[in-house]
């Protein structure tokens, strides 16, 4: 990675971290409802892969831990926060919530809440690309536990069979909700599982963004050049529970502390400081600047935005009725 990119991405990762931590606070204040799944600890995964991809051009789809993926594709963090607040100005106009951020203009094709549900959708997006003849790729970010769904195997088979331009990124954070991977999964190293479909695969350290970036570059070159799908496993860790009601009783504080020693933001920060590209004071100033941005722009926007109107409850269930009249009435031109 180039130095200026590393500096830019460091700030982005701090935005992502602070955004998520501020969500936690807003949830406690009951400003955010529903289920909330936070990303701290895993930032290098999304950032490393997307630095090697073309955000806003390549199609991205993921599960319910989706805020950071949307922002990385180009979503305005203010709109993502407004969505969490359930506001009309939110990414999905307040109809989706935390688990269903969508930003199609930036080709962020959504967060989905059924574990493993996005696998076939990603393959389908790749099928659409294949039919339209573009050089975009589809990137599907999911956790390790999604690989125990039938959709994983069914989709790997079809993606390989039809040679679809899709990259599957497995963010292996070692837990499926509150069950440790070795207690739910016969094969802990997830990239081994796709050899049954003759699919190219690799595994790398998901805490070091430069390693993620290099592995993703190889993977994306493979997919974009028409060689078919690729499966990239990133070893990572989520600091918080699965969602907000999770007190993390299934793992030790020592284990958590061990992973925090390998924090993706600190790894990059310390490297930049060692390379004399920045000082600790620069970093601290940047953190402060990011906190101000989150508070004064992102939270403020969400707080001040209007609610959707109750009379628009049924808007968006179906396509705009006027445009569909030829088929609704059978009076096609």
């Amino acid at each position: 990675m180039k130095l200026e990119d590393k500096k830019r991405v460091l700030r982005e990762m701090v935005v992502h971290r602070r955004f998520e931590e501020r969500c936690y606070q807003a949830y406690i204040e009951r400003k955010i409802g529903g289920f909330l799944h936070l990303y701290p600890g895993q930032e290098a995964c999304c950032n490393g892969v997307m630095e090697a991809a073309r955000p806003g051009y390549d199609y991205v789809i993921t599960g319910y831990r989706d805020h950071v993926h949307a922002i990385k594709c180009g979503s305005d963090p203010r709109e993502v926060m407004a969505e969490l607040y359930g506001k009309e100005t939110g990414s999905s106009k307040g109809r989706g919530g935390s688990m269903h951020i969508f930003d199609v203009k930036h080709r962020f094709m959504g967060g989905y809440a059924l574990v493993g549900g996005p696998f076939p959708l990603a393959a389908g997006i790749a099928k659409g690309i294949q039919m339209k003849g573009g050089d975009e790729i589809a990137i599907c970010f999911l956790g390790d536990a999604a690989n125990n769904q039938g959709t994983f195997h069914e989709t790997m088979n079809m993606a390989a069979l039809y040679k679809l331009p899709v990259l599957f990124v497995c963010e292996n954070n070692l837990y499926g909700i509150g069950t440790a991977i070795e207690r739910s999964t016969a094969v802990v190293h997830q990239h081994k599982r796709v050899c049954g479909y003759d699919m190219e695969a690799a595994e790398t350290d998901g805490q070091d963004i430069e390693k993620v970036y290099e592995a993703a570059k190889t993977a994306i070159n493979h997919v974009r050049s028409g060689k078919g799908p690729y499966f990239l496993e990133l070893l990572t860790y989520r600091y918080r529970g699965h969602s907000m009601s999770d007190s993390r009783g299934y793992r030790s504080r020592e284990e958590e502390e061990m992973w925090k020693q390998r924090d993706p933001i600190f790894i990059l920060r310390d490297r930049l400081i060692a390379e004399k590209a920045m000082t600790m004071a620069d970093y601290e100033a940047m953190e402060k600047e990011v906190d101000n941005y989150i508070e004064n722009e992102v939270i403020k926007f969400a707080e001040e935005s209007p609610e959707p109107k109750a009379e628009e409850l049924e808007k968006y269930v179906f396509a705009d009725r006027e445009s569909q009249m030829p088929w609704i009435t059978g009076k096609a031109a």
Binding site: P120, L121, A123, G124, I125, K127, G128, K132, T151, M158
Partner: peptide, 20 residues
Amino acid sequence: TPISENSYTGLGIGASFLGV
């Protein structure tokens, strides 16, 4: 398609997001 109803249906749905 292979006999994988849920996933080939999902694949069709994903393709439809792009106008297929």
